[in-house]
Design a protein around this nucleic acid. Structure first.
Lengths: 222, 222
DNA sequence: CTGGTAGTGTGCGAATATCGCACGCGACGT
DNA sequence: ACGTCGCGTGCGATATTCGCACACTACCAG
């Protein structure tokens, strides 16, 4: 991402790069830090930040520190909003029933999957908590494996994908984060998967059945 | 927003303008439509879109139609995330208790307020549903009025603001959308307000008390 | 099959927006 | 008072963007 392909706008690229930098810095950055990180002169960063600020995508607090601003929620809201609207009750039901975090994942590129939304259980004693927006390799973690399993077999694919295609759901142990497991199933027709994240899987088939049922219920509404 | 102030980067501005255009077009836009809307040549729009695409902020489906993409959720996620994390249980409780939609609103600029998050009741027979990210004038609607009421009196302010300052919460009837009402209270110390949106207010003082209690509970955690 | 329309993608010279230096400003700490 | 650090603004040089011209694909009609 830090490299700019040919045919790309350098200025726009730099501006967006600022936003991505700020994602990793919840406490904000100073203007000079931004300039240094981009490898441009401070005045350039200054102009870019002013532009982002005018669009309410970043803001500057009293200490002139730069942070992401609320305009971004307006931009993010329409993203797959039909899908998310339909998925919400399904995920809530799933999380409630299993006392685990339920996630909806989309294919983001050739080899990446992105967490689109996450619903955490309300009454669990303890559950895995994480944030939407993250990207992971498609061939790591149950959610990505489920995406691959929904597609025709590819020679050289991981055995886990083949297994998942046969069973109808994917299971992974500690592939993304150590000692955190996942169970996911593909949602028919949409390059989307749906699943659970939890500490321990007691009965794979039981959970797989529940997840598949949820995925099919969502798929039926598309 | 469509005007570019001095000291702004034209290229970055145009790129961001594309994103804002797409917010209003959930079905996507064609490249020529984008170019025409921006008043630039198609090749310019082409390069901008390619750049946005590389950052996963927009994508092009089979028909080459351009829509917002999932990269935006990664950017939006860190926005006020501490505030949102703390507010979520409070809003859920509020929505559940009153069977109405609960919202969290931040001061976005001098004269605008923005919906940061919305929690809808789970078991209500009917409720008002709307989406986060919207901006409204601060002096319209209970949420904005609550923001103003939290600040020192200004000569010439609406009487509703003065009233809200005295009562500790703001009430509005049909100011944003006809026949939709609101009750909101300022959250101490943060230029944030919290409230309810509903069809009809039975007992202003009763709801006001509940909303204030929630706002203070949230304020205590900051 | 042919011709027409509509939309997209790519070189390349010309023009313009960006770049970055230099300077001035305010805040803070010694 | 002085030095340091970070921010904001003109302004000329230059690299970047701009937009024309051309080629390509898909679709539709005759």
């Amino acid at each position: 991402m830090s490299e700019l392909d040919s045919g790309m706008s350098k200025t726009l690229h730099n501006g967006l790069e600022i936003l991505e930098l700020l994602v990793a810095q919840p406490r904000g950055m100073t203007l000079t830090e931004v300039a240094d990180a981009l490898g441009v002169h401070r005045t350039v960063a200054h102009r870019l930040v002013r532009t982002l600020e005018a669009h309410r995508l970043c803001k500057r607090d009293r200490d002139k520190r730069i942070t992401l601003a609320a305009g971004l929620v307006r931009l993010a809201e329409p993203v797959e909003q039909d899908l998310r609207t339909l998925a919400l009750p399904v995920l809530e039901d799933l999380a409630e029933k299993t006392k685990a975090s339920a996630h909806l994942v989309v294919r983001d590129s050739e080899n990446e999957a992105r967490m689109l939304m996450i619903v955490e259980p309300r009454m669990a004693r303890m559950h895995v908590s994480f944030r939407a927006g993250q990207v992971d390799p498609v061939d790591r973690g149950s959610a990505g494996l489920a995406l691959l399993a929904a597609q025709p077999p590819v020679s050289g694919e991981r055995e886990a994908v083949t297994t998942a295609r046969r069973r109808g759901f994917a299971v992974s142990y500690g592939e993304v984060v150590p000692s955190v497991c996942g169970v996911s199933a593909p949602v028919p027709g949409r390059e989307v998967s749906l699943g659970l994240t939890l500490f321990e899987i007691e009965d794979e088939d039981e959970l797989g059945r529940i997840v598949c049922e949820a995925a099919n219920r969502l798929g039926a509404q598309l």
